[in-house]
Every structure is written in C-alpha cells, then in structure tokens.
Computed example of a mutant assay.
Amino acid sequence: MVPLSLLIWIGLETALYLAIARLGLQADWAYAAAGAVGGILGMRAGIVAITWMFGMAFASPAPRLGAGRTARLMLEEYAAFLFTFILVLPFERLWMPADRPRTGQEPILLVHGYGCSRGVWWLLRRRLEAAGHSVASLSLTPPYASLGKLEPLLNARIEALCKATGSSQVQLLAHSMGGLICRSYLARHGRDRVSRLLTLATPHHGTELARLGFGRNAREMEPGSLWLSDMAGEPLNGPTISLRNAYDNYIMPQDNQRLAGARDIELPPVGHLAMLYDRQVATLLIDCCSEGNKTQ
C-alpha cells in the first residue's frame, strides 16, 4: 500500500509542477522538467526542515554539536529522506526481496515506523544477515490506522515466523512507532514468543511532531494521549533495550525515548531516518542482537 501510494503521489506532484511551468509560466519542456525536479526536492527540503525546527524547539538537554556537525547531520537526514521516499519505498520490491529466515535459528523480526513499510530495512537486513543473523520483516497496513489495529499484523507475523523456522521465539527490532506496536503486542500476548525487544528511537512517551501527523496512530503518539497513558502501566517483563537518539528530529522531546525498566543506550548523533543507513548504528544493533542470541 505504501509503495503504490508514494508512486501515485510523486506522479501527481510531478504533473502539477509541469502544468504550472507549462501552462502558467509558459516554460518549454526542459525548463518545466527542471522546475518539477526542483519542486520535488524543495518540498521535501521543507518537510525535513520542519522536523528539525520541531526537534530544536522541544529539544531535551544535550551537548551542543557545533555548527559544522549540525549542518552535516541535517544534510545526511535530508539525503536519507529523499533516498527513502523517492527511490526505496516506491520501488520496494527491487530493494527488498522476500524474507529468507533460516530454519532452526531464532529470527530477528524488523518492525518499521510511521508512514513507512518493510522496505526501510533493506540495508540493515543485509548487514544483519552478513553478521550471521536470521532476519524477517513485515509491512503494517493501513499506514495510518490505530496502533491497536496494527498489532494483530505483528502477532500473525510472529506466529507464522515461528512456525516456518521451528523457533519458539523471535527477537523484535523496531524503529520509531514500531516499538509502540511491539509493546502493544507484549501487553496482549506476553513474552512467550519474544526473547528480547530492541526499540530504535521509539516515542515511548510520545512526540510533539505527531501533532502534525495524519491518522489515528499520529493522535495516539501525541504526548499525554490516552493510548500512551494506558501503555505506560504495562510492565515489560523481560529483556528490553531502548536505543535513544539525543539529537532526533522526529521524536521530541528526545528524552521521550527513555523507557522505564529498559536498558538505555544512547546512539551516536544521527538523524531519525539516517540511522537506518548508518554503519555505527548498524554495528551497535548487531552487537545487541548477537548478545541476545548468546543468552538463549
């Protein structure tokens, strides 16, 4: 659903920019095409800029990075945003072939965040598999449904994965909103099927940016929402790691990523989407997952 929606959106947006240039400005096709590309890039630059403005306006205390490092952080996040939503997700099948979990080995199940699909994991899945892990994924649809409505999809995928691999449990590795859905699963089904939960930049106590989001799940991720208040009372009852990004541009205040009862690990400075491609973050996740396998 997300790949098709993005393709349609990009097509309509391109057509609009071309129409404005050709009919409104009387530009020839070369200038109209250049204007359409500029419009697409400019629109996404504006979206990313808004996330950083929110991130700074509601920032939790953290050491200053300096102008050069901050600029690099923003540019890397902009590149990750363009790459993810223009090249990867619309063409997900080219980047993310079917899962190939191994029989007899406990799998790592990757759970994506808000407005995305399993395609966001294409590089990290490769890195985890290269490190010897068995890895699987899922797409949560419809993308803007209530968090509670998305949880049954996770439950079904876990059961199917355990049956296919012969493993009694899985490790859950979740990015952003995906961590909330994993916690919803644990609240409903317990730990029988889950050996360990790793959340990556998850808004455990909500994010101010959710106030600009679409859908029921965005409302549930607003700080102080009833959904988050109810979930706060659910015990973790098992190994949980919260990997927290002190400079996140989607989850703010950034300390809302902290989760009582979970082991807290601070990530290196990185953007919210850029972390999915970052080698340092990948190494950290591989180490955490390998540590989980050793304790089995």
Rank of each mutant, 00 (worst) to 15 (best):
Q169N: 12
Q171L: 12
R191A: 07
A187K: 09
T165F: 14
P142S: 05
Y185M: 09
I181P: 01
A145K: 00
P143A: 12
C182N: 02
A187L: 08
Q169R: 15
Q169I: 08
L140V: 00
R188C: 12
R157T: 00
L154Q: 03
Q169W: 10
H175C: 08
G148L: 11
S184V: 12
G148C: 07
S168T: 14
A145Q: 02
P143L: 06
E151L: 06
A187Y: 07
H175K: 10
R157C: 02
G179P: 05
L186V: 04
Q169F: 07
R191D: 02
A187E: 08
A156D: 15
Q171T: 15
N155F: 13
C182R: 02
L140N: 00
M177F: 14
S176P: 05
L173V: 12
L154E: 00
L180W: 04
A156Q: 14
K149T: 13
N155L: 15
S167L: 11
R191T: 02
A145I: 05
Y185D: 04
L186Y: 01
G166T: 04
P152N: 10
G148Y: 04
A164D: 13
V170D: 02
C182K: 01
E151T: 11
G148N: 08
I181K: 01
S146Q: 08
A156L: 09
I158Q: 05
S184Q: 10
I158Y: 03
L186E: 01
R183H: 10
S168H: 14
L180M: 11
L140Y: 01
L161M: 13
P142T: 00
H175T: 10
E159M: 06
R191Y: 03
A164P: 06
R191M: 09
A164F: 07
L154Y: 03
R188S: 14
G166Q: 13
L153F: 12
A187N: 09
A187M: 11
A160R: 11
S167C: 14
P142K: 01
G178E: 05
R191L: 04
A156R: 15
L147E: 00
S139H: 07
L153R: 15
G190W: 13
Y144P: 07
V170R: 01
Q171G: 08
R183W: 08
C162Q: 11
M177E: 05
S167Y: 07
P152S: 07
L150Q: 01
C162Y: 08
H189R: 13
S146C: 07
A187G: 13
S139D: 07
G148H: 06
S176N: 05
A174S: 11
R183S: 09
C162E: 08
